[in-house]
Lab assay of single mutants.
Amino acid sequence: MGMPNRKYADGEVVMGRWPGSVLYYEVQVTSYDDASHLYTVKYKDGTELALKESDIRLQS
């Protein structure tokens, strides 16, 4: 078993793309699913969504 190939840690605050949009919002990573390679993130309004790594970026 190798290390999970994840870029962002639980609790890390990053920018997540809103689905169907080009806009990124501040989100907190809450979990990562090794099987689906999706991150569960929480937006400031409390919305929780699963995002692909390509829809997440570090805060500038």
Rank of each mutant, 00 (worst) to 15 (best):
K42R: 13
Y39E: 00
A50M: 14
G11H: 05
D45H: 04
Y24F: 12
K52Y: 12
E53D: 09
M15T: 04
D45P: 02
M1Y: 03
R17N: 04
V41S: 01
Y8D: 01
L23Y: 12
A9K: 13
T40E: 03
D34V: 11
G11Y: 05
L38G: 02
M15E: 10
M3T: 15
A35K: 13
K42T: 10
R6E: 02
D33V: 03
D55Y: 04
L23N: 12
R57D: 06
G46V: 04
M3H: 15
L51D: 00
L49Q: 07
G46P: 01
S31L: 04
K42C: 09
D55V: 02
K7F: 04
K52C: 10
Y24E: 06
P4F: 08
V22W: 13
G16S: 05
Y39Q: 01
I56H: 01
Y43K: 08
Q59S: 13
K42W: 06
S21N: 06
M15V: 05
R57H: 10
S60M: 12
S36F: 08
Y25C: 10
G11W: 05
V29I: 14
V29W: 01
L38Q: 08
P4T: 11
K44M: 12
Y24W: 15
K42Y: 08
G16M: 09
M1N: 15
K7A: 08
L38P: 00
M15K: 05
G16E: 01
A35V: 15
I56W: 01
H37K: 14
V41R: 00
L58F: 09
Y32Q: 00
S60E: 13
V14R: 01
M1C: 13
L38R: 08
G2K: 03
S36M: 10
A35P: 05
S60D: 15
M1L: 13
V41A: 05
K7G: 04
L58Q: 14
V13E: 06
L49R: 09
L38I: 11
R6G: 03
S60R: 03
D34A: 12
E26V: 12
K42I: 13
R57N: 07
K52D: 10
L23A: 10
S36H: 09
M1P: 14
M3F: 12
G16R: 01
G16I: 15
A35W: 11
K7T: 08
T30D: 05
N5R: 04
D34C: 08
D10T: 08
V27R: 00
D10N: 10
Y25M: 10
V29E: 00
E53A: 06
I56N: 01
K52A: 13
M1K: 01
E26N: 05
D45L: 02
S21D: 07
A35E: 14
Q59R: 13
Y8F: 11
T47G: 04
D45Q: 03
T47R: 09
Y24K: 01
N5P: 15
